[in-house]
Design a binder for these strands. Structure first.
Lengths: 100, 100
DNA sequence: CTCTTAGTTCGACAGTCATCGTACCAAGGC
DNA sequence: GCCTTGGTACGATGACTGTCGAACTAAGAG
C-alpha cells in the first residue's frame, strides 16, 4: 500500500534537476546563508522577471523552498530541515563548494 | 550550458543533471555496489541499446564514470574518488536512499 | 482614485533531452 | 572467410527547458 506521503513529497529526480541549474543553486545558496525568509527580488539574478518566477516555481515544485505572501512581497525560505531529513548531506554537498 | 571540456574538470551542473535521471542513478548505484569495473550490458535497464549508450555517455561527459575496452566488452567504473574529492558527500547523499 | 511595487500568467521561441530503430564497427569463435 | 556478441553513430521525434516581453493581479502609498 502506498504510504501516506504527508507534507513532504520529495522526489530526488526533481530535486537534482532543480539544483542542476546555476541560477537556482545561487537562489538556494542565498537562502541557506540568509537563514531567514527573503523576498524573491532580493536575490540578484541576471534574468528577466518571468524567468526568475520560473526558477522559483521549479524550486518550489521540487519541495526545496516554501513561499508565503507578506504585503506586496513574497517571502521565500529554504526547507532545509525537510530536505536534510530525507536526503542527509545533499544540500551541504551541493552548496558548500562555492565557485572559484 | 558550455562546460569546460578538460578531462578532469568536474562541473557540478553536469553532475547534477546526470544524476537527475533515475536510469543513470541506477547505473551509478550498481557501479558503486560492484566496486569493480562492470561491462555496460551487465546493468539491466528497460531501455533500448542506443538509449543505454546515451546514458553512459552523459555519465562519462559529467566525469562520473570512466570506460575502457576489454575484448568485445567495455568495462565501466565509477570515479568515486575524484568525485568525492571535488564534492564530498554528494555521491553518498544521492546513492544511499534506495527507493522503496 | 491613481501610481508604484512585487510578482504571476501567458504565449512564443530556440535549444536540449530521452527515446527509438536501423545501420554500423570491433573483436572473437566457428 | 562468416557469424555472433557488445557497443557506437546517425537521424528522427515528441517532450521538456530556459529565456523573453507583454499583459495581468494584488497590495500599499500618495
Amino acid at each position: 500500500m502506498v504510504a501516506a506521503e504527508l507534507d513532504s513529497e520529495l522526489d530526488l529526480s526533481l530535486i537534482l534537476h532543480a539544483l542542476s541549474d546555476p541560477h537556482r543553486r545561487t537562489i538556494v545558496r542565498e537562502l541557506a546563508a540568509a537563514a531567514e525568509p527573503v523576498p524573491c527580488g532580493a536575490i540578484m539574478l541576471e534574468v528577466g522577471k518571468s524567468t526568475r518566477t520560473h526558477h522559483f516555481r521549479v524550486l518550489r515544485e521540487a519541495g526545496l523552498i516554501s513561499q508565503r505572501r507578506e504585503g506586496t512581497r513574497k517571502l521565500t525560505s529554504l526547507r532545509k530541515a525537510e530536505v536534510d531529513a530525507e536526503f542527509p548531506g545533499l544540500l551541504d554537498a551541493v552548496l558548500v563548494p562555492v565557485p572559484v
